[in-house]
């Protein structure tokens, strides 16, 4: 087990252009499940590939277990990686796929069978060993890829969107399985995804990236409840955080905190008149979108997320409110978080 660290890690693909990854500093913790979260093109996969040794950094250092590994080949870094496409060897059986890293790293031959069977049973694919990858379902392929990754007991696991090729139902069970698997083996894991639900559910910590820059790194609760800037605030959460400008400051609040004024018990709250323009019924909840009426925020579009219990007609106006401590404040020019302050709204 080892800690992965990067220092001012940068990757520029085309000279003169903005880097795909810019001066990323990060340090994993022992046995941690760290998630790189970002939209496509945010540099999360490039960052992972640099850690794996598949991409050469333009600048900066990568350390694994306290040792600079910039000049080491992937095999010398003792990492394992699961690719988005799984990258199983199509001409080899499942057994030989899992045994390949052992052969390649010259692990004594007589131990192969035992190790392959151990990895296969850990992932419940013991019955598939003689099959070829083309004869497997998506979920089975993913497990073979994982088994191939753990068989040589790596110091770090790198997972590149391993669930994105599975259908929604399978994805949920595969996610749980991955979490259980991580708890069992306890290997430091870096997981790349663009899916915030996966990130929140699985990560011990989440690192949010955009345009090659780290926006925030923290526990799922920290990045959700206390976003460092407006990008993190709107990227996490579905629907995203409402952002309203007032007195040169951007104020944000989550749709689930924007509720009927009478339902909010706190005394310190900001009350808005909210005209409903659209209602989406999602079974367990409503998503209301509409505009604020009157005051400084007149005409601003906002979204509310409410549990069932009320009926809302399109076109009606209601008294809605947000608890004062649920308001987040961001600087208008830097878009970074700033300390709370009191603003007038009328």
């Amino acid at each position: 087990m080892a800690v992965v660290e990067t220092r001012k890690l940068t990757k520029v693909f085309k000279e003169g252009e903005l880097g795909a990854v810019n001066e990323v500093d990060l340090e994993t913790r022992e046995g941690e499940f760290l998630v790189f979260l970002g939209p496509s093109g945010s540099g999360k996969t490039t960052l992972l590939r640099m850690i794996a040794g598949l991409e050469t950094p333009t600048a900066g250092e990568i350390l694994i277990g306290g040792k600079v590994v910039n000049d080491l080949t992937p095999r010398e870094r003792r990492i394992a990686m699961v690719f988005q496409s799984y990258a199983l060897y199509p001409h080899l059986t499942v057994y030989n796929n899992i045994a390949f890293p052992l052969k390649a790293q010259k692990v004594p031959r007589h131990t192969h069978k035992e190790k392959v069977e151990w990895a296969a049973s850990l992932l419940g694919i013991g019955g598939l060993l003689q099959r070829k990858p083309r004869e497997l379902s998506g979920g089975e392929r993913q497990r073979v890829a994982l088994a191939r990754a753990i068989v040589r007991e790596p110091s770090v696991f790198l997972l590149d969107e391993p669930l994105s090729n599975l259908d929604a139902k399978l994805r949920l069970s595969a996610r749980e399985e991955l979490e259980r698997f991580h708890r069992r083996v306890g290997t430091t894991t870096i997981y790349v995804t663009h899916d915030q639900v996966e990130a929140m559910a699985m990560g011990d910590r989440v690192m949010v990236l955009n345009k090659g820059v780290v926006r925030q790194i923290g526990t799922p609760k920290e990045v959700y409840d206390d976003p460092a800037d407006t990008f993190v605030a709107t990227f996490l959460g579905s629907p995203p955080m409402n952002l309203i400008e007032n007195d040169g400051i951007i104020v944000g609040f989550r749709p689930e905190h924007f509720r009927l004024a009478e339902d909010i018990r706190e005394s310190a709250k900001v009350i808005f008149k909210f005209r409903v323009e659209n209602v989406e019924y999602l079974g367990a909840e409503f998503i209301l979108s509409g505009v604020l009426v009157g005051g400084k925020a007149d005409g601003k579009k906002v979204i509310a997320r409410l549990l069932l219990g009320h009926d809302f007609e399109i076109g009606t106006t209601h008294d809605f409110a947000v608890g004062q401590h649920q308001l987040k404040f961001f600087d208008r020019s830097t878009e970074k978080k700033i300390p709370p302050r009191s603003l007038t709204w009328q």
């Binding site: 080949t73 992937p74 095999r75 394992a80 390949f100 890293p101």
Partner: peptide
Amino acid sequence: IPKEIPEAAAIDGAGFWRTTFQINLPI
């Protein structure tokens, strides 16, 4: 050949010859 396959081989610890003769050529 999808480029992840030789990359996976590199990560699995295969060098140039092993990747060429055991992965790329058979595929």
